[in-house]
Design a protein around this nucleic acid. Structure first.
Lengths: 231, 231
DNA sequence: ATTACTAAAACTCGAGTAC
DNA sequence: TGTACTCGAGTTTTAGTAA
C-alpha cells in the first residue's frame, strides 16, 4: 500500500461511500467494484485487499449463506479521513483558482493609427452598443514582455469576446474587432482589443478605455502595464 | 497515457490549476512539480509529457532566454473537463452519501425483562434527563436479519450515544445503557439501546420509544423492522 | 455464482546522465 | 542551473484458473 491514495483506491472508496459504506457494511461484489472504477474483477479484489491492509476499509461478515457471494465492506475512520484530505486538496484547486488572463508588458507609443481607426463611425456605433461606451481617442499600446503572455493573447482570438463587425465605407473594408473586458494595473476598467487586421507584431496588444488611461494612471513609455481579463 | 486520470496526473493538474494555469501559461520547473506531488523531477517530467500527449496540458514558449530554464504550462479545455469530471465524482460521494446506520430485522417477542429493567427508577430519572422522556414500558426486540447488521450494531458501543449510568439498589447492581436516537420504519421516533449486561444474543437489539411502537406501527411478531440511526 | 491466487505483461519509478 | 532520455527495479494490471 503506497503512501498516497492511488486513483483506483480513491475511486473504490468513493463508490463505496456513495453506497453508504461510511456507516454501514454494504454488500458488493468485486466485479461490481471493478466496473465502477473501470478495472477488472481481479484488480478490484486486489484494491480491496490493499485498502484493508492499509486500514482504510474493513470487511464484515459475508452477505449470504453460500460461499463466494460477495463481500461486505465499510470505510474506516482513517479511510474517510484520507478521502477528505484528497477531496480538500482538489476542492482547493477547483474552487479558488485564479480565473483571469494576465498579460504583463510595458507601454510603448503607437503611431496613432489605432486611435484613427477606432474613431470611425462604423466602429463607434457598435462600441456604444456592445461595450457601452465610445473609446477615448487614443489606444494604449502594450508590448508584452514574455513569450508566454504573447501566446495567451493570441489564444484570445479563439475564446470569444464582444465582436465588433467589420464594415466597408465604399472605398475600403475594415476588419472585425474583438473586445475583452478587463482592467489595467488592477484599477482602471478597459477593453483589450484584438484586430482582424493589425500592423503590430503579435507581441504588441492594444487597449481601449472610456477615458485617457495614460493620464489617469500616470503612465509613460516604458511604464510596466499589467492587463487583467476576467474569464 | 491511460484512459483515466492517475492520481499523480490529477495532482499535477491541481497544482497547476491553483497556480493559475487554467487561463495563463504558468512558468514552473519539473522539480517544483515533483515536489508538489511528492515524486522525483524525472517522474514529474514524465507526467508533463503524458499530460501533453493526452491533450490535457499544453506547453508554451520557454520562460526565459537561457536553455533548460523551466517550462510554461497551461491546462487545456479538455484537461479542465477531466479534472471537473473527477472532482464531481468525488464531490458527489463526499457531499451526499447516506449518513445513517441502518439495521434491518424482524420483530420478535421478548420476555418482558427489558420493560422491567427500563422501568426502574434508577434508569427512568436519567432517561428523562438525557433523552427527554420516560420510555413506554415495553421494549421492542428486533432480531437482525443479516450478519453485517449485527456487526454494525455491535460497533455502536464504541461510537458514543447518550450514556445512562449504571447504579446499585443495595442488593444488586445494574449496568449502563447507551441510547442512540433514530426512527423505526422511517416514521416513529425511537432510541436503540445497548446494554452493558444483556440476556440477548448479539443479533437481537432493543428499541425504546415514548409510545407503544408495536401498536403505533401495527407490528406483530415477524414483521419486518428497519431502524435508522442518523450519525 | 463468487474470491483471489499465479504468472506474465504493462506501467511507473528514481538513479544516472546527455545535452 | 534546467529537461528529459535510458535502464533496472518495483508495482499494477489482466488472463487463466483453483476453490
Amino acid at each position: 500500500m503506497p503512501a498516497d491514495l492511488r486513483s483506483h483506491h480513491l475511486r473504490t472508496l468513493a463508490y463505496l461511500l456513495s453506497r453508504g459504506a461510511r456507516h454501514n457494511f454494504v454488500p458488493v461484489t468485486t466485479s461490481e467494484l471493478g466496473r465502477a472504477v473501470g478495472r477488472s474483477q481481479q484488480a478490484a479484489s486486489r484494491h480491496v485487499l490493499d485498502l484493508e491492509e492499509g486500514g482504510l476499509l474493513e470487511r464484515g461478515p459475508a452477505p449470504a449463506a453460500a460461499a463466494g457471494r460477495g463481500v461486505s465492506l465499510r470505510i474506516t475512520q482513517r479511510g474517510y479521513s484520507e478521502m477528505a484530505r484528497v477531496y480538500e486538496e482538489l476542492r482547493g484547486a477547483m474552487e479558488s483558482h485564479p480565473s483571469h488572463v494576465e498579460l504583463d508588458g510595458v507601454l510603448v507609443s503607437g503611431m496613432g493609427e489605432g486611435a484613427y481607426y477606432m474613431s470611425l463611425d462604423g466602429y463607434t456605433a457598435q462600441f456604444r452598443e456592445r461595450i457601452g461606451y465610445v473609446p477615448f481617442p487614443g489606444t494604449l499600446n502594450v508590448r508584452l514582455s514574455e513569450a508566454r503572455h504573447v501566446s495567451a493573447a493570441v489564444r484570445l482570438d479563439q475564446v470569444g469576446g464582444e465582436l465588433i463587425d467589420g464594415f466597408s465605407d465604399g472605398r475600403r473594408t475594415y476588419g472585425w474587432v474583438r473586445c475583452f473586458a478587463g482592467s489595467v494595473n488592477g484599477a482602471v476598467g478597459c477593453h483589450l482589443i484584438r484586430l482582424e487586421r493589425t500592423h503590430h507584431d503579435p507581441a504588441t496588444v492594444e487597449v481601449i478605455s472610456r477615458s485617457n488611461i495614460r493620464r489617469a494612471c500616470g503612465l509613460e513609455d516604458g511604464s510596466p502595464v499589467s492587463i487583467r481579463l476576467p474569464m
